[in-house]
Design a protein around this nucleic acid. Structure first.
Lengths: 245, 245
DNA sequence: GCAATAGTGTCTTTTAGACAGTATCCA
DNA sequence: TGGATACTGTCTAAAAGACACTATTGC
């Protein structure tokens, strides 16, 4: 093809404007728990294409300011929730020539888990964004293939909850084991045995005691409070949970 | 920003050439088993940048011909191995402003597993590609961040082998349980108990008997032969294997 | 018979499921 | 005392680890 003698010479003559590739965006499925429901943050698009429809927070990479894909995702998360470094991880990438009317486009999908409380105040200042129960997504007019993206993130969430302690990230700390079990149940969309749950979590030594609290309704025995121990995010159970094989 | 009245009008005036995003490529880490070693397919780059260095098969999306990212990956796989539809799945995407000297670039990484035999003949016609034992990758002059990509794919391979029957994809069919166990051990880089292995695989009912064969060395008791049953790729074990917790 | 490979019996250990039981709070 | 919530005891079941054992072949 070309006949440059060195990489330096090649790069000197390389002009990235001659490259025309697909559109690239980063989208973030941000989940939280509120009012005993799993909710996802959606923004109503103010511009074409898909103006007026609901979409995941996301957009193009800022090639000047974003050091990497994770930085783009983190920026999007902070823009909409005000929250910084909770759980934020890549789910997958999706690209084809049909998902965006502007042409071949690729999105890198991230998912985030945040406790609801710290976002509440900030969210009031973000007029175009709101939390929707995930079950309602089917009913909404969704932009692009974002309904499918949410499902992909939702699946990952469900799967990972079965062998990690991912749900600690949607609770404000400290929390009780009952609250944690509720979080697990909502993320996995299934009921769990109380005894099995507590045995599993406590035996793994991934929580630290942090006092005790009176029960939510005011009535009942006070519950022990916990915070995640250092490194608990990395704990992998050898066996998945909640399968009545 | 703009003031188009309808999506059709917006699209009519949209010119994708005004968009300047990151370079996007798809790279495929293709693994096989040969001579009792896990090997990865690398090609020696003939062009700048990184001319002369070893790289994963990959390149830009053909926006005219590739329907989606998977199609691009599949094309790359077929170009280099002649093999079509074995195991091919997305691992992750990696993007930053440092991995390619041409500027901000994103790669979508796939991994593939193929039996060695069907690739052998085709590979002779592909002069710039060869199988390298994965342990040797550290010693090679690798292009871009491809050493890191290989490690990411390798990690995924190891993890998934612990709760699926992924390794069936690197064996030519039919195979014996001993061959399958060897494949598991090479992909997981650990030793497995024979009895536990056989119990796990056979109880899961994911293999079908397919006659028997005389042992490889000519000596010894003949072994039962198996092929994967339909749907076996989707089988998920509830417990990871090979952990002496 | 021996070497080599294939395959089994069986005991222990770990951890989840089931579910009834006890503990501690408020009114 | 009773209702509500938190927490435990304990039996069973499933599946992995360990490892010695038997089975079938070629020489």
């Amino acid at each position: 093809m070309s006949s440059w003698q060195s990489e330096a010479e090649f790069l000197e003559h390389y002009d990235s404007r001659h490259y025309s590739g697909p559109l690239v965006s980063v989208d973030v499925a941000i989940f939280t728990l509120h009012e005993a429901q799993l909710k996802v943050l959606l923004v109503q698009r103010g511009e074409f294409p898909c103006k007026g429809r609901w979409a995941l927070p996301g957009g193009f990479i800022n090639m000047g300011g974003d050091a990497d894909l994770y930085a783009t995702a983190r920026r999007k998360l902070k823009d909409k929730t005000g929250v910084d470094a909770p759980l934020l991880e890549q789910v997958c990438s999706l690209g084809n020539d049909a998902r965006d009317p502007r042409g071949w486009s690729v999105t890198v999908l991230y998912m985030a888990l945040v406790p609801w409380a710290p976002t509440a105040e900030f969210m009031e200042s973000v007029t175009d964004a709101r939390w929707w129960p995930v079950q309602w997504v089917d009913e909404l007019a969704m932009a692009f293939d974002h309904a499918a993206l949410i499902e992909a993130a939702r699946d990952r969430l469900k799967n990972k909850t079965a062998y990690t302690v991912l749900p600690v990230h949607v609770l404000k700390r400290p929390f009780t084991l009952t609250q944690l079990q509720n979080a697990f149940e909502l993320l996995m969309d299934t009921q769990l045995e109380k005894k099995s749950f507590r045995r599993r979590i406590l035996n793994a030594k991934i929580l630290e005691e942090a006092g005790e609290a009176s029960p939510e309704g005011g009535r009942g025995r006070p519950a022990a409070l916990y915070v995640p121990a250092r490194g608990s995010e990395k704990h992998l159970f050898a066996r998945v949970f909640g399968e009545t094989a």
